[in-house]
Simulated scan of single mutants.
Amino acid sequence: MSVTQVNTAKLSVVQDFKEITKMRLALSVVFSSVAGYLLGVETLSWSTLLLLAIGGYFMVGASNAFNQIIERDLDKLMDRTKNRPVPSGRMSVNTAFAIATLFTIAGISVLYSINPKTAMFGAISIFIYVSLYTPLKTKTPLSVFVGAIPGAIPFMLGWVAATNDFGIEPGTLFMIQFFWQFPHFWAIGWFLYDDYKKGGFFMLPTGKRDKGTAVQVIIYTIWTVATSLIPVFGVTGRLYLSPVSGLIILILGLVLLRSAIRLYKNRDAKTAKQLMIMSVLYITLLQIIYVADKFIRIWI
């Protein structure tokens, strides 16, 4: 075998590993967890932060690997997923299962080394994603509600890792990311509607790209923005947001809402994709603003 073939094979293995664990998604989850940690912590511990990032990555990687094992036959039917490692045949089910199992054990163990509550929420996240959300995707649009639970845990998980406590603060962080899931995933479900249909997945609340779905996208966008502003009013314990930061988030929220309203008016794939991009931008900037606001107030 030539050097070029060896290098290509190595690249293929790395690429398959990235796909089976959904590296980009996992890194976004780690980002949310780190943001939650920075919000909750009083004395920063770099070792805990590193453990949280590693444990969070393992947790998401395990969920995604199990998901791709379960859905391998359906993934073959969709253009978006047919080239994934398992459905394409590049990776065996046994190899994928070994990765998923190893990541589950490693993820829960690493999170447990931070504190038991963090490990518990990590385990709950994997269980709900794999055992409830994944099988429900082909049964009912309510799967998005179930999937929003593990999807909302990372932001909250960071706070629990920092404090070893679950209260109003992590509950609020959970609620923000929970409501955010709906406009985000319904936007994805809209512009990938035809591909999801091939796999038999029901992602939109009405099952169709219609006014009913668009109205619900608007409603949940409003809920997302409203919950994002609750900490401004000083009712969420140690989780506080200054009025200036609140105003910035409100402006971002209005831009997000405008994207949701545009989807209602246009009801096309292009507008849905724009809403999805805007939703990612919204939650990312929100987390940065929350963290920056805390540390600016400490320094001042």
Rank of each mutant, 00 (worst) to 15 (best):
F182R: 11
N164D: 15
F185Y: 14
E169S: 15
F178M: 05
G171S: 03
L157R: 08
W186R: 05
H184P: 00
A162E: 00
M175P: 03
F178W: 12
F178N: 01
E169D: 13
V160K: 13
F182W: 12
F166V: 14
G167D: 14
W180F: 08
A161K: 11
V160T: 11
Q177P: 00
W186Y: 03
T163Q: 15
M175E: 07
F185I: 01
P183A: 10
Q181V: 01
F166M: 09
I188Q: 07
N164F: 09
G167L: 10
G167Q: 12
L173C: 09
Q181T: 04
E169Q: 13
I176T: 09
A187I: 01
V160G: 00
I176P: 04
L157N: 10
W159L: 10
F182K: 14
D165L: 14
P183R: 11
A161C: 03
W180V: 03
A187N: 04
T163L: 13
Q177R: 05
W186D: 05
A187T: 00
W186F: 09
I176Q: 14
L157F: 07
T163F: 12
A187L: 05
F179A: 12
W180Y: 10
Q177D: 13
M175R: 09
I168C: 00
F178Q: 06
W180S: 08
L173F: 09
P170I: 12
M175T: 15
F185L: 06
E169H: 08
H184A: 05
A162G: 06
P183C: 11
W159A: 00
W186G: 04
F185P: 01
Q177E: 13
F182M: 14
I188M: 08
F166E: 01
H184D: 04
F185V: 02
G171T: 06
P170F: 10
L173K: 10
T163Y: 07
L173D: 11
H184C: 02
G167P: 04
T172L: 15
A161N: 01
A187S: 15
G158L: 03
E169I: 05
I188G: 00
W159H: 09
F178D: 04
P183E: 12
W180H: 14
I176D: 08
W180A: 09
F166K: 10
A161P: 08
L173V: 11
G158W: 04
